[in-house]
Amino acid sequence: MKVQGEHLFKGTPQQVWDLFRDTEVMSAALPGTKKMELIGENIYEAVMNVRVGPVAGEFSGQLVISNENYPHSYTMTVEGRGKPGFMKGVGDVILKDQGGNQTSMEYVGEVQIGGKLAAVGQRLIDTVAKSIINQAFEILDNALTERVSADAEGREADYRKSSERDYAATVAKDLIKNVLKRTGSEDS
């Protein structure tokens, strides 16, 4: 499965770069994250609850950052396994300064999934992945704003953690949107 997209952040490339290195922010942004910690240079270990349609369970795995070119680009390798199956992904992330305190993030990667997740969740996985990404960006946007203003005000940033319930609601919304799009009954 190919994962590709672009997002515009309100912050400098350096701020965005740092945001993505903050395990607290990242675990707040990714739904179902039970644990995320740095275990070595650029190696993170994470435990996540994943639910794709009828398939649910805990995934544990590693995220490795390589090819770092601060604050412009890096490569992300994710590998995880759990009861619902496994996933493996490699992606490149490019940050571009758009001026006016704005940074665009372009990402492109290839994700491979297997096990129950692939066999039974295949129809839903595309939408679920997009939902996770969209929701994560929404939270990251807020986190970045909070971080920037907290920095300016010299206080601790306070992040809202997304609940699995929020995430489930988003996925459901996106799925319905997709179905409507397919049947052509959506106005837009």
Partner: peptide, 16 residues
């Protein structure tokens, strides 16, 4: 039966 390039069967249910 849809097998992907890694040999995963992608429609292993009677719903798919």
């Amino acid at each position: 039966l849809h097998f992907d390039e890694s040999g995963q069967l992608l429609n292993a249910s009677l719903a798919d």
